[in-house]
């Protein structure tokens, strides 16, 4: 059952991307191309760890501690979303430049914060509070050869729920319809009385908040190591690539994240297989796989040229009513 174990492991790893890309999809559907996701994910991680650093060792109810961590992670990254929205929507700055600035700023600030924190404190909350009782049945899973089932915890299922909910919201509700209209054609949305600015702000903030949870999940839940925050930036970029892979449909990020998770971790997995001669040099090459797959998906979707699979039509453009 080694391969199933491997897929479950990839799934657990992929939840990081589910958060990141679901957040980015919600943002992009409002017409904002937020390239600040790597920085936002780092800030989400740092924000959550910051509060755990103070309450992690307290006598507080551990479930409350976990909840507070999630909440602060969400808040820290939503603040990044507010800054981004203010720059791009209110001041109508260039979205790409602003996004890249947010990444640089977010990564730098997050690393500074993380360096000041003590991992013994923020990693102190027992793992079991992030897990469901069924996944704690270690011996049973080991018997079945599915060790990685232990890794599927509260935040993993939260990621799945958020992705499915986001799809439902976007494609099955009035609010979703309005939001998609804002991203496709803000002038049309404006003409029918939709508050374009408000939709852009709220979508960007909520999207950033969700993306930030990915950072928190990766540091605290999936890896549980004090060095984990250093890989987050790369995963942020991967999440943005995944948006294209998932064709702007949040529920597809679940599939996409698993594929990305598999592609990403197969570099270390393959090196363990004896009959494939791998050297240290092939590892970076294997790490390119997710990005190559993204390029292939881009090529395929643009060849098929189905309008529904294209990015929102006004993605990356500022909207100003008096422009005609």
């Amino acid at each position: 059952m080694g391969w199933l174990n491997f897929i479950i492991e990839s799934l657990a790893f992929g939840a990081t991307f589910i958060y990141g890309s679901t957040g980015e999809i919600i943002t992009e559907k409002s017409g904002n191309l937020n390239l600040g996701i790597p920085g936002i994910m780092c800030m989400g991680g740092a924000g959550g760890c910051l509060v755990l650093n103070y309450i992690g060792k307290s006598n507080m109810n551990p479930i409350l501690i976990v909840l507070l961590g999630i909440l602060c992670s969400f808040a820290a990254s939503a603040v990044m979303g507010v800054i981004y929205s203010f720059m791009t929507v209110t001041l109508r700055c260039n979205q790409n430049v602003t996004g890249l600035a947010m990444t640089t700023f977010g990564v730098g600030l997050a690393w500074t914060i993380m360096a000041k924190l003590q991992q013994t404190k923020y990693l102190n909350t027992p793992k079991k509070y992030y897990r469901f009782p069924f996944s704690q049945n270690v011996t049973k899973w080991q018997e079945m050869g599915l060790d990685s089932m232990q890794k599927l915890g509260v935040m993993f299922f939260l990621a799945i729920i958020i992705a499915v909910l986001a799809s439902f919201l976007l494609y099955r509700t009035k609010v979703g319809l309005n939001l998609r209209a804002v991203g496709e054609n803000p002038a049309t949305a404006d003409a029918v009385g939709i508050n374009v600015t408000r939709y852009k702000y709220i979508a960007t903030c909520i999207g950033s908040g969700i993306a930030g949870l990915g950072g928190f999940y990766y540091i605290i839940d999936f890896s549980g190591s004090g060095e984990a925050y250093k890989s987050l930036e790369a995963y942020g970029w991967l999440s943005i690539a995944l948006v294209i892979f998932a064709l702007w449909r949040p529920h597809l990020t679940i599939v996409g994240s698993t594929v990305f998770g598999i592609l990403f971790s197969c570099s270390s997995y393959i090196t363990n297989i004896s009959w494939i001669r791998t050297t240290m040099a092939t590892k970076p090459l294997l790490r390119m796989l997710p990005y190559i797959v993204t390029i292939i998906v881009l090529v395929v979707t643009s060849i098929r040229n189905k309008k529904e699979n294209q990015p929102p039509a006004s993605l990356g453009l500022s909207y100003f009513r008096e422009d005609r």
């Binding site: 009035k174 309005n178 039509a313």
Partner: peptide, 17 residues
Amino acid sequence: FKLVDIFTAAENIVLGI
């Protein structure tokens, strides 16, 4: 016309109400 291309007729009609 002020219409969203990838929406159906009905979606465009009900938009913003």
